[in-house]
């Protein structure tokens, strides 16, 4: 008998993906899509230089966001796990980290706009302090703004799994390292980081897939000026080009799967958990 889980996965995961694959070979007119088996959508996708720029841009966002969220996330988790002694405080501070998540993603993102704008709070403050004479233009509607929003939105996805693995590290290992004469940096590098790898990897997968699949953050924070693959797909859907949107989605899916496949080469999550 097919287990319920398999049935659910088949209906809600496999079937939609199969449909997307099928539609990606169809043909579109302005108001309808016609079943066909053509490679036109893929030919146009791979034939356009913009596609490569956009994929490159998607990787750029993912990589930079990953670096920042890892740095910040690791630091926060480290502080929570090793510097805060009492469990009550650990939990309290951990909950504090989640407060921004009580409002919606989009609101957290949009609230940056008045802050970073040409006449926004950041520029007004810097001018009143005499740090700058002219408003800084690249604060808003730029790659800077996009990455800032990504880091803000997704750092917690790094903190949680890293904190989780750190809490499971046997404290006696650290004491043993210290007794053996290791200094703080050596303990961090040779004991804590290797043992935190699964957490880092899970956080990495979260952040990378979220950033690669995002479109709304890029649209709002870049003022529609930059694009990643998600935005390409959302534009195509908006213009009723479902088959080409499907083709782009399939290419993105394959790209993300390859990326995760490579990531999983570094750490065997199953073994470590």
């Amino acid at each position: 008998m097919v287990s319920p889980l398999v049935a659910v996965l088949l209906i809600f995961l496999v079937l939609p993906i199969v449909l997307i694959v099928i539609v990606s070979f169809w043909r579109a007119t302005e108001f309808s899509i016609i079943p066909a088996f053509e490679f036109d959508n893929y030919a146009f996708l791979f034939g356009s230089p913009v596609t490569y720029t956009v994929f490159l841009n998607t990787f750029k966002y993912a990589l930079i966001t990953w670096a920042f969220t890892l740095l910040i996330g690791f630091t926060v988790a480290y502080y929570l796990a090793f510097h805060i002694r009492s469990l009550t405080w650990q939990i309290a501070l951990f909950l504090l980290c989640t407060i921004p998540f009580w409002t919606s993603n989009i609101i957290r993102m949009i609230s940056w706009i008045p802050f970073l704008g040409r006449n926004g709070i950041a520029n007004a403050t810097l001018i009143s302090w005499g740090v700058i004479d002219e408003p800084i233009e690249w604060l808003l509607f730029s790659d800077f703004a996009v990455i800032l929003a990504f880091v803000h939105l997704y750092t917690l996805f790094m903190v949680v799994p890293i904190f989780n693995t750190m809490m499971r590290i046997d404290k006696s290992l650290i004491e043993a390292a210290r007794d053996a004469g290791a200094n703080g940096a050596q303990i961090l590098w040779n004991v804590i980081i290797p043992l935190t790898k699964p957490g880092i990897m899970i956080g990495t997968i979260f952040v990378v897939t979220l950033v690669m699949g995002d479109f709304i953050t890029v649209r709002f924070m870049s003022g529609s000026q930059s694009a990643n693959v998600g935005r390409l797909i959302s534009n195509e859907i908006a213009l009723l080009q479902y088959p080409s949107a499907s083709a782009t989605a399939i290419v993105l899916l394959v790209t993300v799967l390859i990326t995760i496949g490579i990531l999983l080469r570094f750490v065997d999550i199953r073994k470590e958990l």
Binding site: S48, V50, V54, S224, A227, N235, L239, Q241
Partner: peptide
């Protein structure tokens, strides 16, 4: 519309 999409993404 394809060209337009490229313009937005360019």
């Amino acid at each position: 519309v394809r060209k337009w999409n490229e313009f937005i993404a360019a």
